[in-house]
Simulated assay, not measured.
Amino acid sequence: MYTLNFDLQDFLNHYWQKQPLVIKAAFKDFNDPISADELAGLACEEEIASRIILTKPDNWEIIQGPIEDYAPFGEDNWQLLVQAVNHWYPDAQPLVEAFRFIPDWRFDDLMVSFATPGGGVGPHIDNYDVFLLQGEGKRRWKVGPQGTYSPRGGDTHTALIDDFEPMIDVVLEAGDMLYIPPGFPHRGETLETALSYSIGFRAPSQQELISGIADHLIDTNSGNKRFTSNQEPNSPGLLPTAQQTQMLALLSELLTQPEHYQQVLGQLLSQNRFELDICDPDGQHTNDELIEALQDGATIQRIGGLKVIRLEDDNQLRLFINGEIYRFDSIELSILDTLANQFSFDNDTALALCKQTTVADYFIWLLDQGYAYLA
């Protein structure tokens, strides 16, 4: 059980997406949910995103995983980063749960790093919110103000920048945490062998939203209304300002129709950037088998990282799950909220919910898709 040790409402009011914040003892008596050896084991797997960052004089080298041999890296000046640990390591889920005061649709992943003395990431800027939580060991972090910074070596394809003048310079120990909103430059340096946790939250860009809308219109063969006008310019090579505005109004009209934008948002924001550890279903489940398992004490557990999202004021009764749509013929909104909010369902709760056939069918679908399992 992980419980945050600070005023969440004050944080949301004054710091979230506004200012960096150092939170000493954010978790009291913090215990690492994963060991260095277990993290190294995950980095051996082909389907899990991992990398080694080597600290070199005035530079950093990235070695993409899987990583099986650490001997060449020596005893200092490197760190291992493993993405989406919460997808593959169930014991990490309770730590993720502590951060669900931020909505699930924003949550990106739990990245865990093991770093040797001198290991770290150079000065860089992220385009997402991140909580940097310290486990065992110590790391020093510097954070600079927002501003205009030159990409390191003129390379615009990397997040690395030239150095900055810090406004925060702090050493984090076990349980300490640093929050950094998008756009603030920062860099970390390991003082003694350390485990660290990066809890990231990401919002969609204009590019991603427009791309999602376009894909939806193509898939549904909709958005076919064409531009019309009752007056044309005298000059054949001219596109008048009025017609430019009218064309954009045609697009704006489309984006205000819930039947289009709600599905796009639900599917886009319920998808994960990283691969999920989909369960291999053991055949098709039946209602009787589900009820019998629950009566025997089983619980229904969603797989790590699965996003289940409900849209407020949705024009349909549905949930968005990993980019897919699950529709209900009829269901109370309070129950729909429960299905979206709860990560696991104990046997008593699940049995009570399964009295409604629509909910039992939903649980069976989750199990058959490999999005949940009986624990």
Rank of each mutant, 00 (worst) to 15 (best):
L4E: 05
N5S: 09
F6M: 00
D7Q: 10
Q9T: 15
L21H: 06
L21Y: 01
A26M: 00
F27M: 03
S35H: 10
A36R: 09
D37Q: 14
A40R: 14
L42C: 07
A43H: 08
A43T: 09
E45P: 05
R51E: 07
P57V: 03
N59T: 12
I67F: 05
P72K: 03
F73W: 00
F73G: 01
Q79S: 14
V82Y: 07
A84H: 06
H87Q: 09
H87Y: 01
W88H: 14
P90H: 03
P90W: 03
D91V: 08
D91S: 13
Q93A: 06
Q93R: 14
Q93H: 01
P94E: 05
P94N: 01
P94K: 06
F101E: 09
I102D: 05
I102W: 06
D104H: 04
R106C: 04
F107S: 00
F114H: 13
F114E: 02
G119S: 07
G122M: 07
G122H: 01
G122E: 01
I125E: 06
D126G: 02
N127Y: 13
Y128E: 03
Y128K: 00
L133W: 07
Q134D: 03
Q134K: 02
K138S: 14
R139E: 02
R140E: 11
V143Y: 08
Q146I: 13
Q146E: 14
Q146H: 05
Q146Y: 03
T148W: 04
P151H: 10
R152H: 14
G153M: 11
T156M: 04
T156Q: 10
F164C: 07
E165L: 08
I168S: 01
D169G: 01
G175K: 01
Y179A: 04
P181C: 04
P182V: 05
G188I: 00
E189C: 11
L191M: 13
S196R: 04
F201A: 05
R202L: 11
S205M: 02
Q207M: 10
Q207K: 12
I213D: 04
A214N: 10
D215K: 12
H216P: 01
I218V: 15
G223P: 10
F227N: 04
E232W: 15
P233C: 02
N234Q: 14
S235A: 13
Q244I: 15
S252C: 08
S252H: 12
E253R: 13
T256D: 13
Q257R: 15
L265T: 02
G266P: 06
L268M: 15
L268C: 08
Q271R: 15
N272Q: 15
N272I: 05
D277W: 00
I278N: 12
C279N: 04
P281V: 07
G283R: 07
H285Y: 12
N287I: 08
D288N: 08
L290E: 04
I291L: 15
L294P: 11
D296K: 12
A298D: 13
I300C: 09
I303R: 00
G305C: 06
G305Q: 07
L306F: 00
L311T: 08
D314V: 07
Q316R: 13
F320W: 15
G323T: 03
I325R: 09
Y326D: 03
Y326G: 09
F328R: 12
I335Q: 11
L336E: 04
T338H: 02
L339I: 09
N341V: 06
Q342H: 14
Q342S: 08
F343E: 10
L351K: 11
C354H: 06
W365D: 14
L367E: 05
Q369V: 00
Y373N: 06
A375W: 11
